[in-house]
Write a protein that binds this DNA or RNA. Structure first.
Lengths: 347, 347
DNA sequence: TTGATTTATTGGAACGTTCCATTTATAGGA
DNA sequence: TCCTATAAATGGAACGTTCCAATAAATCAA
C-alpha cells in the first residue's frame, strides 16, 4: 500500500511529460504556465500522491511559512483562547502556527525555542515562562528572527510586547469596590517576580491612594495563581485582626478559589465578601455566583500579536512598538450590591 | 547586531580549522572525534551563533524528530492535559511535538495535516474533528507516516486508537446511580455522529438493561458538549411529564452546565437531582458541589499514545493495536446520598 | 624498519527544491 | 517572407546538511 520511495517533483515531471522547473512553477501558482499544462501537472501530482517537501524548499527560499507559538501553560484556558485568536489571523495569511508548551519551565522553554529555530520558523510569539533570564532570547535576536511577547513581558528587554492594560484594569476594579462602600481591601495571589503582578498590584495601590485608603487597610497576600492559591489567600486574610471585606484577585483562577473557600466557611461571595477577578475567562460568566472580572479581550490580543508579527516579518525588522490592549470591567454578582453610601458614586 | 548571512557548517569548519564533515560528526555527538577537536568545534559554534538547519539535514536523513499533534479543541482543558502527558514521553525520546488546533473543523484539519506532512513529521497523533471523512487519512497512510488516534476514533478505519473504556465507564456510573435508588435516569449531551457518544450511551443502556430499568424511564437528550449544552438538556428533561431524578452526562462540561441550570431553578445537585460527569477534569474536584465523575487518566492515555507512536516509528510500521484505558468512578457530592433502599448495594 | 591495524579526519556526491539565464514555440508587424 | 516581441518551458547551479569511501596519522607487532 505504502509506496516506498516518496515522489519528488522529478517524478511528477516525468509523469506529466514536462520539466521539473515547470512543476515547481505550477506548485507556486505562477501565471507563466499555460492553463492546460497546469492541469496536466496537477493531475500527475494527485496520481502519484506527491507530498511537497518544505524543508528542501526552505533551503532556497528566504523565509518559511511557519511561526512558533511558545506558551507557558496550555492547561490555562486563557492561553488557549489567545492561541485561537492568533490562528485566525495566521490562517488568513497562509502561515501555519505550531504551538509548543513550556509548562512554566525555563529549561524546557530553551529546548523548545532551539527546536523551533532549527525548524526555521519565520517568527516566534512567546508567553515567557516564569523565571526566564534576560539573555534567553539574545541568540534568537542575533539571528534576526522576530520575537513578540504576548501577555507577559520581561523586565529588561527590547522585544515588543502585546499585553492588556493591567494597571488600568486593576485600578478600575479597585475603584469599583471602593464605590461599593468597601474600605478594607485585599489583593490576592501572584508573586512579585512577574511584571504582570507588579502592574496589577500597582493599579490596585493607585486606586487606594486616589481614594485615600490608609495603608493599614490594604492587605496584600501573595500566592499561587490557581484555585488552590486563591483558597489559601482567603484563609490567610480572614485570620487577620481586621480582615478585608473585598478582594481584587490576580486572575480568575484565584478568584474562583476565593469563592470556593468562602462557601466552605458558609459565606457567599457577593453577599458576605466582594470578589473581583482578572482576565474574564469564559467560565466567569457561568460561575455561581457569576464573577465580576476585568475583561482583557484575549482573542483580540492574540489577533493583534499575530498582526504585529506578520508586519515584522514583512518588513524584515526585529523591532516593533508595544501594544497595550484596552480593558473593561464586567460587573456581575460576585462583587455584590452597594454596601452603604460612605462614598458616593458621582462621576 | 543581527549578522546577515546565517552561519553554516562550513563557516564553523573554517573558524575551527577542520572540515565540514568533522563539524557534522561533532553535531551528532559521534565518538569518532578526538575530544579536543570536539571542544574546538563547539567553541566555534558558540562564537558564530550557529543555528542547526534541520530542514537541510532531513533532506539526507531518513527521519525527522518532530511529531505532529492535531487536536480538535484546545480550549477544552481535557485535551491540554492529554498534550501534557504526551510531551513528557516525547521529550525523553528527544522528539519535539508540535501542536496544532483544528477547532473541530474538518477543513481546517485537512490544512493542518497537509502542513505537517510538508514539514516532514515522523508521525501524527490526532484527535479527529467531528465530521472527519473516512478518506481524510488515506494519503497520509499511503505515504507511510504513522498515525494514532487519541480519545476519538473514526467509524471505519484501521488506524490504531488510544481511548478510555467509555462503555465500562458509563456502565459503572449508571450502576452507581441505580444503586443510590434512582429509577428514572437520563443521559445528557453529545450526539450520535461521535463514536465516543455511541460507546458511552451504550454503557448507560447496558446498565439500564442489567437492572431492568423500563425503556419509558430512560431519557436521552442530545446536545452540545459544553456548559451551555448541559443547561439546555436539563431544561428539556425537566419539562417532561415524568422527569428523571438523575443524569449521566456525556462529559464534565455538560455536567457543570446541568449543575448551574439546577441552581438557577433553586435546586441543588446532589440533594435534589443526582449528576455524574465523564472525564474527571481537574476542576471536577473543586466544583461546588464537587462533581462525581468517571476518571479516565488523561495524562496516562497521552503517555500511552506517545509510546505507541514511538514504537511505530521505530519499527517502520503503520499498524498497531488499539489501547483501551482503564476507567474508575470517582464518587463526590454531586451524585448525592442514597435515595432509599429499593435496591440494595450488596456485592 | 616495514607493513598491518586502528583511530581521526576529509572530500564529494546526494537529498528535493527554487530561480536565473536560456532556449524554444507562438504570434505579430512589415 | 523574415525579424522582433512575447509567451512558455527548460537545464543547471545553489541551498546546508549527511554519509560513504578514501586518506592521513598514530599505534602496534614483527
Amino acid at each position: 500500500m505504502a509506496s516506498r520511495a516518496k515522489a519528488t517533483i522529478l517524478d511528477i515531471a516525468r509523469e506529466a511529460g514536462v520539466s521539473k522547473s515547470t512543476v515547481s512553477l505550477v506548485l507556486q501558482g505562477s501565471g507563466l504556465i499555460r492553463p492546460e499544462t497546469a492541469v496536466k501537472v496537477r493531475k500527475a501530482i494527485e496520481d502519484v500522491g506527491y507530498v511537497y517537501n518544505r524543508g528542501a524548499a526552505n533551503l532556497r527560499k528566504a523565509h518559511s511559512n511557519v511561526i512558533g507559538m511558545v506558551i507557558n501553560d496550555l492547561t490555562n484556558p486563557f492561553f488557549a483562547e489567545l492561541a485561537v485568536g492568533m490562528e485566525r489571523v495566521f490562517q488568513a495569511a497562509g502561515v501555519v502556527p505550531f504551538i509548543a508548551n513550556t509548562a512554566e519551565n525555563p529549561v524546557r522553554q530553551q529546548e523548545v525555542l532551539k527546536s523551533m529555530m532549527e525548524q526555521g520558523v519565520a517568527g516566534l510569539i512567546v508567553s515567557p515562562a516564569r523565571g526566564t533570564t534576560p539573555g534567553a532570547f539574545r541568540r534568537i535576536e542575533a539571528a534576526g528572527v522576530p520575537v513578540v511577547f504576548a501577555m507577559r513581558r520581561l523586565p529588561e528587554s527590547r522585544i515588543p510586547a502585546i499585553a492588556p492594560d493591567n494597571r488600568r484594569g486593576a485600578c478600575l476594579a479597585t475603584e469599583h469596590l471602593i464605590r461599593k462602600g468597601h474600605r478594607r481591601l485585599a489583593f490576592f495571589g501572584g508573586s512579585s517576580d512577574l511584571v504582570v503582578y507588579q502592574e496589577r498590584l500597582g493599579g490596585f495601590l493607585e486606586a487606594c491612594e486616589a481614594f485615600a485608603i490608609p495603608v493599614a487597610d490594604r492587605t496584600i497576600v501573595e500566592g499561587e495563581t490557581s484555585r488552590k492559591g486563591g483558597m489559601a489567600c482567603l484563609e490567610t486574610a480572614l485570620a487577620m485582626p481586621d480582615p478585608p471585606t473585598a478582594a481584587l484577585c490576580f486572575n480568575d483562577a484565584v478568584a474562583f478559589g476565593v469563592i470556593l473557600a468562602l462557601r466552605k466557611r458558609g459565606l457567599e461571595a457577593g453577599a458576605d465578601f466582594a470578589v473581583v477577578g482578572f482576565d474574564d475567562v469564559a467560565e466567569a460568566e457561568h460561575y455561581s455566583p457569576a464573577l465580576t472580572s476585568v475583561a482583557v479581550d484575549t482573542a483580540g490580543l492574540g489577533e493583534r500579536a499575530a498582526h504585529v508579527m506578520l508586519k515584522m516579518i514583512q518588513s524584515r525588522t526585529t523591532r516593533a512598538e508595544d501594544h497595550i490592549g484596552a480593558v473593561s470591567l464586567v460587573v456581575r454578582e460576585s462583587s455584590g450590591p452597594n454596601r452603604n453610601s460612605q462614598v458616593g458614586d458621582a462621576a
